[in-house]
Nucleic acid binder design. Structure first.
Lengths: 230, 230
DNA sequence: GTCTATACATAGATAGAC
DNA sequence: GTCTATCTATGTATAGAC
């Protein structure tokens, strides 16, 4: 990591800037054509840097790809923080879905890189999925199970419930072209994304037995608050 | 397409067998590593045929890929036939979901090839998505809208409802590795797939306001049959 | 730290004997 | 119709001047 003639400070500042530029360009290219389809030359062109610089900073194409994935994984699980034992179920799920939809809207490239990796067998993140993700899902699924036992949420398989939320929300990033073509839109505008957010939220809340209609019924006394507990 | 010395019949029989072997091997390789990652040499090895034969039958890698996609598209939309105006909504949706889950279970490779294609911008099937798929969804969405108007189904955005069913069911083929690792299973057995089927069906019916609990409530008189129509 | 030139491997595709 | 040998392009990675 050392060499050159500039001072350490200047070197690091330039280094960080280039590092970030390369990561950004790489995320775009990996998202567009996948790991196998991406070429270092294309990434270098997007980053407006010579090809050799990429190898100077990251060594190999695989190492660069892992760096991109690493950036993604940290961001990817953040929204799950909304699920806590003391949260109001409807509010927590609404917040979780909103955060996941926002992620698909604001970082579709990250979603596609992740999807491509898993689609092809997760060769680079298998351990992450088997450990961190598995552990996190186990924890959050336990929270939902607590809510279900307390009659605060409709009974369901909590792990498959998470699969549903992921599938639904990430679909709008990963299958964006299909969504766009079926809806016959040039691109999704802000209002379209707001609509996606409200529709997905509605679906998730209905699955959890927490939709407006259900809650209204509950409030009006037609269905007791603990009616799911039976 | 003509040459050789064998009779037309024998030639075609051998030709068809090889044709099918190549398509099968190609589907597997394209599913595993994507279009860009697939090599004609690898596909030839899986089909146990010399590389040159692939070019003899299909010309180019892209043409072979299109042939694989073509086989998939026909199968892919079949399940939508279950959605008809005169169907019972709950029965039709149950049948539709069951067929889509069965497709993910029985033809996961086909699902992954399709997912990979769409994920990377659908360069080969853009026209199909913009025409056939768009038209089909418009038709079937209209059927659901009819059910909603008649108070036979909860109100929702019907096109996004289809996105939900696709996302949910195809998730189990496309993200199979993640599902397997999170659930800590070596592989999904028959009973696991049955469980997936019942959970996904339950979720979809709840979204449509047609779940057991809702229907029971409806029968017991706590909620009128037309309560969704308001 | 940066960049040009290049080594070496593998890709898709085809020629031409059988 | 089948298959071996080969052409040409492109890919990753690195050497070495600056």
């Amino acid at each position: 990591m050392d060499g050159g003639g500039a001072t350490g400070i200047a070197r690091r500042r330039i280094g960080r800037a280039n590092h970030a530029r390369i990561l950004k360009a790489a995320e775009r290219v990996f998202a567009e054509v996948g790991f196998a389809g991406a070429s270092m030359a294309e990434i270098a062109a997007r980053a407006k840097l010579p090809k050799a610089n990429l190898h100077y900073y990251f060594g190999t194409k695989e190492a660069l790809y892992r760096a991109v994935l690493n950036d993604i994984l940290a961001v990817w699980l953040g929204p799950m923080d909304a699920i806590r034992p003391d949260s109001d179920p409807a509010a927590a799920l609404t917040e979780y879905v909103a955060a996941k939809v926002a992620a698909s809207r604001d970082r579709p490239l990250a979603s596609r890189v992740f999807a491509n990796e898993v689609l092809h067998g997760a060769p680079q993140i298998e351990r992450f999925l088997a450990r961190e993700l598995r552990q996190l899902v186990a924890e959050k699924a336990a929270v939902l199970e607590g809510w279900i036992e307390d009659g605060r949420m409709a009974p369901l398989d909590t792990k498959h419930f998470f699969f549903m939320v992921w599938a639904l929300t990430q679909h709008y990033a990963d299958f964006a072209v299909q969504v766009r073509l079926v809806l016959d839109k040039k691109r999704l505008e802000r209002k379209d994304w707001d609509h996606v957010g409200s529709e997905v939220t509605r679906m998730v809340l209905r699955v959890a037995g927490l939709a407006e209609a259900d809650r209204a019924a509950s409030v009006s006394g037609r269905r007791g608050a603990a009616s799911w507990a039976s």
